[in-house]
């Protein structure tokens, strides 16, 4: 147990932060209806003595924004959307990349040079600029109102963020798979009559799932980074409401989703620096703990070459072998 804890200390630390924040967020959403504490002014004897925004203090842990919403509460409420979205997009990215990578490793090895050249060329385009360029016409509210419904906007953004990573990630996974496929035991499995699907299920996945986990975590980080950047440039998940009236209210987000918060609060940076710093800090902590998980996974991968399932099997084999060889010595006189 102790060795397990030490070995996985990084993973434990990182994932406990993320799971904790997600749990708190869900509890807040389910049991308290996503309610957010708000203190617009402090009264002493019915006279207001101080008004929002408040600096971080004992009664307001992370301070409040200009409307008096407690930022700690806001961050926790928004966590499930942002982290959930990051996980969702990364899962889809991994799934499609795995499918494409498998196809590439099994059938498209002939075109390896062409495909890697295309994927390489794709790397040279800065993702944030590309995402901004493709998302802006859909997400921004035009003068006459939104062109597309809320669901369309959300799905468009999700699909685009998935597609943008596919060329690179599927090539990485495809290369990993093709390295395994070239090993000798695959040849012997094929000679014994294993189908491609069987080989994939029984041999390839066992060998690369640790690597896949690492790539997955890195993808979550990438998605979060892109979301933070898009939020900074005021493209929010589900669309940016732009006020075209004379009052010109700042663009607003409705879900307290972190990237939207960055965009919302960023104008206040010079006056109340702690307000935009809170969502940015939330992103930073999340990415830091995800990186901790990556580090732990990498350590795990280097320290333990044989996989868990294989080890179990070897134990079983030993048991069987012991049983078989446990014969009595009979002496013949």
């Amino acid at each position: 147990m102790k060795t397990f804890f030490v070995r996985n200390f990084y993973i434990l630390l990182g994932s406990s932060f993320i799971v904790g924040v997600l749990l708190a967020s869900c509890i807040n959403g389910v049991f308290f209806d996503g309610e957010i504490k708000q203190t617009q002014a402090i009264y002493v004897d019915a006279y207001p003595v101080d008004a929002a925004p408040f600096k971080p203090s004992q009664s307001f842990w992370l301070g409040t924004d200009t409307n008096g919403r407690h930022l700690l509460h806001v961050i926790i409420e928004g966590a499930k959307y942002t982290i959930g979205l990051g996980l969702l997009i990364a899962i889809f990215r991994m799934f499609f990349s795995f499918v494409l990578g498998t196809i590439y490793a099994l059938y498209l090895q002939k075109y390896q040079r062409v495909l890697s050249a295309i994927s390489n060329a794709f790397q040279y385009i800065p993702v944030v600029l590309l995402a901004y360029f493709l998302l802006r016409p859909v997400l921004n509210q035009a003068f006459e109102g939104f062109q597309y419904s809320f669901a369309t906007r959300v799905w468009y953004e999700i699909i685009l963020l998935i597609l943008l990573a596919l060329p690179t990630v599927s090539l990485v996974i495809g290369n990993e798979i093709s390295i395994i496929l070239r090993k000798e035991f695959i040849h012997s499995a094929k000679t014994l009559g294993a189908s491609s699907f069987f080989i994939l299920r029984k041999h390839v996945i066992v060998h690369i799932y640790r690597r896949l986990l690492i790539i997955f975590t890195q993808q979550v980080i990438q998605v979060l980074l892109i979301l933070a950047h898009l939020g900074l440039f005021e493209l929010y998940l589900g669309g940016t409401k732009i006020d075209y009236s004379i009052m010109k209210a700042a663009p607003i987000t409705t879900t307290y989703e972190w990237s939207g918060l960055i965009g919302d609060y960023f104008d206040l940076f010079i006056v109340y620096p702690w307000i935009p710093l809170v969502p940015i800090g939330a992103f930073t902590l999340t990415i830091l703990s995800l990186n901790l998980i990556v580090k732990g996974l990498e350590k795990n991968m280097n320290s333990e070459p044989a996989t868990q399932t294989k080890r179990l099997k070897q134990k079983e084999i030993k048991k069987v072998a012991l049983k078989e060889f446990n014969f009595k010595v009979v002496t013949r006189d």
Partner: peptide
């Protein structure tokens, strides 16, 4: 190095801006 590497660029730039102020 690990900690610095994991910080998003956004955070670093904002911190520098605050440092200047």
């Amino acid at each position: 190095v690990f900690v610095l590497e994991s910080l998003p660029d956004l955070f670093i730039v904002v911190m520098i801006q605050m440092g200047v102020v």
